[in-house]
């Protein structure tokens, strides 16, 4: 599992600062540019609901599993406050109830189910409810025989849910295995950053895998690796372009082209009909 230092990128009213180049830009301009910096092309982090609206036709989706909320099943002991308190704060800060938002909608006219993760909610970490929502999304796609899409961004498993969060890697994988067996296309978009338990489960199981430019993608976070090998990491290590060169992603896709490219691929990968339909 990995952990990231929080970068300052909270929009301050009308203006916001690009976390990469540091230039100020109109918040509205940045939003219209799909949260890509107009100056340096940096792909900023996008929350789950915004991502779904960016990808889906008419910016509309029907939410799945919104009612599921995380609980402190371990009664996790920290120094100050409880896990429940932290969750409450995260909800207020991120404006979502968990680190993934799942919804049904259409992508260039193709019916899809999409799960979009949210790095602003506890570093996009995966606990029981994140795993459960992903699994329900996959189930929904399977039941409707439509493609399942995941936009993955996460620091890894959620420590406060201990081994239960680790087990979500198995739960989500069991569902993706079903999709494979049933011939339901499963597409993954890796967004910055994606490491740890998410990267070592459903995020690495796509039939086709895209990555956003510059996204940090890996099993271990760079700091963990640096501490292990006690040496500087090479420039560009674990970035989307590096993963492309090493053969682990199919395409690095600019956010402005993401919807179009997903639709193009989906037109090749049609969900297999239900077995009984095929027979009858």
């Amino acid at each position: 599992m990995a952990f990231f230092r929080k970068k300052k990128e909270i929009p301050v009213g009308l203006w916001m600062k690009c976390p990469s180049c540091g230039k100020m830009a109109f918040t509205k301009t940045v939003e219209e540019n799909l949260h890509v910096c107009p100056d340096c092309d940096h792909h900023m982090k996008v929350n789950g609901p915004t991502r779904l609206r960016q990808l889906l036709d008419d910016r509309k989706y029907e939410a799945i599993g919104e009612d599921l909320e995380p609980r402190d099943l371990l009664r996790f002991k920290e120094d100050v406050g409880t896990y429940e308190d932290k969750l409450k704060k995260s909800r207020l800060k991120a404006g979502v109830t968990e680190a993934v938002t799942v919804g049904r909608g259409h992508l260039e006219g193709i019916a899809v189910t999409v799960a979009a993760m949210d790095f602003s909610f506890r570093g996009g970490s995966m606990g029981v409810v994140v795993g459960e929502r992903i699994a329900r999304g996959a189930e929904d796609a399977l039941a409707r025989r439509v493609p399942f899409l995941v936009v993955a961004t996460s620091g890894g498993a959620r420590m406060q849910e201990g081994a239960l969060s680790l087990m979500q890697m198995a739960k989500t994988s069991a569902m993706i295995a079903r999709l494979r067996e049933e011939g339901i296309p499963y597409l993954v978009v890796l967004a910055d950053p994606c490491t740890g338990g998410v990267s070592a489960s459903f995020a690495a199981q796509g039939d086709v895998t895209f990555a956003e430019p510059g996204a940090l993608i890996g099993f271990a976070g760079p700091r963990v690796i640096q501490n292990t090998i006690k040496a500087q990491l090479p420039e560009g290590f674990q970035r989307a372009e590096f993963l492309l060169a090493k053969g682990y992603v199919d395409r690095v896709v600019h956010r402005r082209d993401l919807k179009k490219e997903l639709a193009t691929v989906l037109r090749y990968l049609e969900p297999r009909a239900r077995p009984q339909e095929a027979v009858g």
């Binding site: 890697m169 995020a203 099993f219 271990a220 090998i229 090479p234 290590f237």
Partner: peptide, 26 residues
Amino acid sequence: GAYPGVGAEERGQAWAIAENILEMCR
């Protein structure tokens, strides 16, 4: 834990583990 090193990342540690988990599910 799985080894967190440069070579392991270059050769897709996350993908290797993810594929094992999926295959062991079925």
